[in-house]
Design a protein around this nucleic acid. Structure first.
Lengths: 199, 199
DNA sequence: TGACCGACCTGTATC
DNA sequence: TGATACAGGTCGGTC
């Protein structure tokens, strides 16, 4: 396997995980710089096992050299978990698919989706601090009151947890905390817009 | 799909098929030694163009040197057709895929599948005689009488040849000589368990 | 250009 | 239950 394991350079400074200062959630000794975020699509969290990185951000923040761009092997991106204290790292293959002219994160992504219980509509965000990269995610915002007011009626109908519906429906993006009914995602519980995904 | 890849490790008594002593169908001067066989899966005969060789047998009968094992090029295995009088040979690329930790026959395999009209559920078997390798195949065994007794009723129903049904059904393993109805494979004709695949 | 095929990947069943 | 085998996929190169 000829993967050009280009670690996007980070000097591992494990000692400052709790640095408190400027950055986001208290990690990353230096100031955490927000790069971009993406509301994930059903495909991003489905069986395709890949995250499409919007080209604009990809070329701005994760530029691939000509060699890596033409190689299917792409490169490897390492992100530190922005939340977990242990500084868990996520290794993703990152490459360019010429067929679809898109930048994608492939290998490693499905593990992240599973681990974070990521569902369509959730948001993943990417930050950096010095040479270090961080990844974070949060739940989608709660649905508007008008929609969620349907829930009482729905409660009397024989519905399924979305995790039990067939793949096509599940791919449509409803996670463990909502019901999908007549094509509409219903929140089971009122949730704050940003929910800590730690288990 | 949980098809149990039953590798039937039998001591080859080919003479019960042809009666003749010594070497099976009259080839291979020396005694034909059965190595192993595999009931092919839908993937083995589908678009993936590869046969997964169960690791146990691969390492026992087709060991790859360290060099060939690490190389994607693998090696080439030549098999003589165990049935055709002309001694047709089949050349297969044989290699190890480290990503899935499996041994596979790739190049040349799809030609064999096509030529032999191989379908899921059929069996391919590998023998050797001296330094020569032989490959053979046979149709899946006929379904039990209790099941095939459904055929009279089935005859009046609008059924399809399995070769025309969709991939999922075709994948279930019914070949050109049977019908698949209500999830049951029905033989169209009474067949001996071992059928010569020559056209 | 499209069909074929090589390389790589992952979920699931199994041990 | 963790590790492993492998069936069922993907994308991209090639011809």
């Amino acid at each position: 396997m000829a993967m050009t394991t280009t670690m996007v350079a980070w000097e591992s400074r494990r000692d400052q995980l709790q640095g408190g200062g400027g950055g986001g959630h208290g990690h990353g000794g230096e100031r955490r710089e927000h790069m971009f975020e993406k509301v994930v699509t059903p495909s991003d969290v489905g069986k395709l096992n890949r995250l499409v990185v919007p080209k604009h951000y990809a070329e701005k923040y994760f530029p691939l050299g000509a060699a890596a761009r033409s190689s299917p092997a792409g490169t490897v991106l390492c992100f530190e978990d922005a939340r977990r204290g242990g500084g868990e790292t996520w290794r993703f293959r990152y490459s360019y698919w010429s067929s679809s002219q898109s930048y994608v994160i492939t290998k490693g992504w499905s593990r992240f989706v599973r681990d974070k219980r990521l569902v369509a509509g959730d948001t993943v965000s990417f930050c950096r601090a010095g040479g270090r990269l961080f990844i974070d995610c949060r739940r989608r915002a709660a649905v508007p009151p008008t929609t969620s007011s349907l829930a009482p009626q729905a409660a009397s109908i024989n519905v399924q947890r979305s995790s039990a519906v067939d793949e096509k429906e599940a791919a449509a993006g409803c996670g463990g905390r909502c019901l999908r009914l007549f094509g509409v995602d219903l929140q089971l519980l009122a949730e704050p817009p940003a929910l800590d995904l730690q288990l």
